[in-house]
Design a protein around this nucleic acid. Structure first.
Length: 111
DNA sequence: TCATTGGCTATCA
DNA sequence: CTGATAGCCAATG
């Protein structure tokens, strides 16, 4: 299992309504490659999500919920499909977003 | 294989 | 708040 796969694996475990950070994932993998975590998630847009099949996509069930991964300071960070999409998805899960920021104390999911 | 570049970052000045 | 820098991986040449 390479680095990217580990990242995606951990990300897929984040439950609905919770979020985690790039840093947390990196630490879980015993490394400081937070940037590489973002790179890994970005690749996912051309990988698991699309290859998982159109059915799954139509049902609004992303295989790898990369929208639940944010910056360690509460900022949203980025999103391959557009930041607005990320905001929308998170709000659908009941996560409040004010000024493009999330209350980590409240929604953080410890891996 | 090596060098370079860029990314959904973190941290410090 | 804005750099600058540290830092790791993957894509590219």
């Amino acid at each position: 299992m390479n680095f990217t796969q580990k990242v995606l694996s951990l990300t897929s475990r984040i439950p609905r309504g919770k979020v985690t950070t790039y840093k947390a994932i990196a630490e879980k993998l015993n490394t400081r490659a937070y940037r590489a975590v973002g790179t890994a998630l970005n690749k996912n847009k051309n990988g698991a999500w699309q290859q998982a099949g159109k059915r799954i996509c139509r049902r609004h069930h992303a295989v790898i919920p990369c929208h639940r991964v944010i910056n360690s300071d509460g900022n949203l960070g980025g999103y391959a499909h557009g930041l607005k999409k990320k905001i929308h998805l998170l709000r659908e899960e009941g996560i409040e977003i004010k000024d493009n920021k999330i209350n980590l104390k409240r929604y953080f999911f410890k891996l």
